[in-house]
Design a protein around this nucleic acid. Structure first.
Length: 609
DNA sequence: CAGAAACGGGG
DNA sequence: GTGTACGTTTCTG
């Protein structure tokens, strides 16, 4: 039996003897090369919850489907303790196969937690957070020089007990950025015709080069015979340097698909996975994501769209925004001409290629700390996190919290439900159009975090909502006649009621997030160590972003805890507060000349007469 | 005017 | 893979 402290980079599962085997891709902590490890856990099983009014009958009906196990458990459903049947399956794929059958059984009212991917379920139930350190123990199945390189070795361990969270500091991650330049005489290149002319590579392990068939007199260019060798060289460099994170700019949509097409055409294997597996593309709705097992691919374009707010998100624009410097520029449609020129323009193209990839790495180093922090906060793999909308990030945070609170998670809405939700909308914040003119003697007034304060102080949460709606299943049966006006908050305009007790699930979570942020800000003030300060700053920033997302989330059509009543109540109270403040200010001679949502500007007029 | 389609980024 | 996920602008009937 061996023990290892590892940093979890990635997770998936494979099928072994008709059962699921979870694979944790990590690197061994303390090993300066960051030796790779694949830890296999065969002990975790998929399950769902079933709601029924006739538990006995329901159990008999489900038994006929021959699941692995059926148990009766007590969990909270919108804070009401209820009995559930926990049905365990033999294989994760049995869940999508059998859930519809189960759902339509006569004795079944509803099914829950049937839409949580298996590896995410594993992370949540085992309290495992990617990019954190934890201890595993088990038997070494294989130990050999890595499939990927001759340099260092890799271990495969069969785990004998669940992983034990340690937390720990962030590991040193080996990051590499890459970028293709392609011959493009007809505008955007076509992978079946146009060859790759350059592959730029930059890495924090000390690589900065361009691989190409030309440019032999430039010191940063590694010249090869042909395009095939170019791709092989690229693959070799990534493998040899034991890279943890590979970054590109729009690489989900351009660089990786193009590289994949050309590699296929030329017969080169892009077997960059930690387990030796090939590059794959996952369909993620409207776009594809390029994935490598145990080697995290981050497309910075996707990330930047969420990280900063800009009019455009070209690499050039983003770089300028973050660093205030201009990049080397070659007009995209002229790249083929620069390549053909064999003069100073060719050199310029090489400079452009190198500059692109150096800038990409620089952006990655600047912005990854936040993504890593969010990964540890949300508890989903870095790869997933960088591709999740902020609303989805907040939702997965809540799914984890629900597990902690012993709450059963609401179902993800189906397509029909999403479109019907989209037809509803909440009135936004109060806006008073500015009075035109030059104003003097202005005072500014605003509420500090108006919406979160309202959610917490008015206990706005679907689980304590007293108005009849799809979301208040738990409270429908409660006798509202037993409650007096003192027992609930009533929203302005709509008269929507929220029980004062118990504290709602979401107000509770938001409250904790804000408390945690204040604690970190306090620690930030107390420390003089600049490194500690920087880390704490990123931590509070992650909490702030998470909290900010939660304020508007009740109105997101795909949100599991969606509630238009909650969304409307928040803004209604918001409008109420701002209007009352304006009225109050007027009594003291301050007249608002402009107001928006949570604040206003007012002009002081000394006397009314 | 509503609903569908295209776009973003990349070369 | 306990899959099929954006938000906004422009076009089309």
């Amino acid at each position: 039996m061996e023990k290892r402290n590892i940093i979890l980079l990635d997770i998936d599962y494979i099928t072994k003897d008709e059962k699921a085997a979870v694979r944790l891709f990590g690197k061994i902590k303390g090993d300066e090369q960051g030796k790779n490890i694949i830890a296999i856990d065969e002990s975790f099983e998929p399950y769902i919850y079933v709601i029924s009014d006739d538990i006995k009958l329901c159990r008999r009906e489900i038994e006929e489907l021959n699941p692995e196990k059926i148990e009766t458990v007590t969990k909270k459903n919108f804070q009401v303790e209820s009995q559930f049947l926990k049905v365990t399956f033999k294989h994760p794929q049995d869940v999508p196969k059998l859930r519809d059958t189960i759902k339509h059984l006569d004795s079944v009212k509803d099914i829950r937690e049937h839409d949580i991917p298996f590896y995410r379920r594993y992370l949540i139930d085992n309290n495992v957070f990617p990019m954190s350190e934890f201890e595993i123990s088990g038997e070494i199945l294989e130990s050999y020089p890595s499939i990927n390189s001759s340099k260092d070795s890799m271990e495969i361990i069969k785990m004998s007990s669940p992983p034990k969270m340690i937390g720990g500091e962030f590991p040193e991650l080996r990051i590499l950025s890459f970028d293709l330049e392609v011959y493009n005489p007809k505008g955007m290149p076509n992978a079946s015709k146009n060859e790759i002319i350059m592959i730029g590579i930059s890495s924090n392990v000390g690589i900065e080069k361009v691989i190409s068939t030309k440019g032999e007199d430039l010191d940063y260019v590694e010249t090869v015979e042909n395009e095939k060798e170019m791709i092989e060289k690229f693959v070799a460099i990534v493998k040899e340097n034991n890279i943890d994170i590979i970054v590109g700019y729009n690489s989900d949509n351009f660089d990786f698909p193009y590289l994949n097409d050309r590699a296929k055409l030329l017969g080169v294997d892009l077997d960059l996975g930690m387990d030796g597996s090939n590059l794959k593309f996952m369909r993620r709705g409207y776009t594809n994501a390029a994935t490598l097992k145990g080697l995290i691919h981050i497309d910075l374009y996707l990330l930047m769209r969420r990280y900063i707010s800009l009019d455009r998100y070209t690499l050039e624009r983003v770089y300028q925004e973050l660093f205030g410097e201009e990049k080397v520029d070659v007009p995209g449609d002229k790249i083929w001409q620069y390549w053909d020129s064999d003069s100073e323009d060719l050199v310029k193209l090489f400079e452009y290629s190198l500059d692109d990839v150096v800038s990409t790495l620089k952006i990655a180093e600047e912005t990854l700390p936040l993504s890593l922090e969010l990964t540890r906060l949300i508890g989903q793999p870095l790869f997933d996190l960088t591709r999740l909308a902020t609303g989805q990030q907040a939702e997965w945070y809540l799914v984890r919290k629900a597990y902690e609170y012993n709450e059963v998670v609401p179902n993800k809405p189906g397509g029909m439900e999403v479109s019907s939700r989209k037809t509803e909308s909440a009135v936004g914040g109060y806006v008073k159009e500015p009075e035109i003119g030059l104003h003097e003697n202005l005072v500014q007034f605003d509420f500090r975090s108006l919406y979160p304060s309202i959610i917490i102080s008015k206990n706005i949460s679907p689980d304590v909502l007293l108005t009849n709606s799809v979301n208040n299943i738990a409270r429908i049966n409660e006798d509202e006649n037993d409650l007096t006006d003192d027992d609930y908050y009533i929203s302005p305009e709509y008269g929507i009621k929220f029980a004062k007790k118990p504290q709602g699930f979401i107000p509770s979570v938001i409250g904790n997030v804000l408390d945690e942020r204040l604690k970190i800000k306090k620690r930030m003030k107390e420390t003089d160590d600049p490194t500690a300060k920087r880390i704490l700053h990123v931590q509070q920033d992650a909490l702030k972003r998470l909290a900010n997302t939660m304020y508007g989330i009740y109105g997101f059509s795909r949100f599991r805890w969606y509630s238009m009543e909650c969304a409307r109540s928040i803004t209604a109270w918001g409008r109420d507060y701002i209007k009352n403040s304006m009225k109050k200010a007027e009594e003291y001679g301050f007249y608002a000349i402009y107001a928006d949502t949570d604040g206003f500007y007012a002009k002081y007029i000394a006397s009314k007469e």
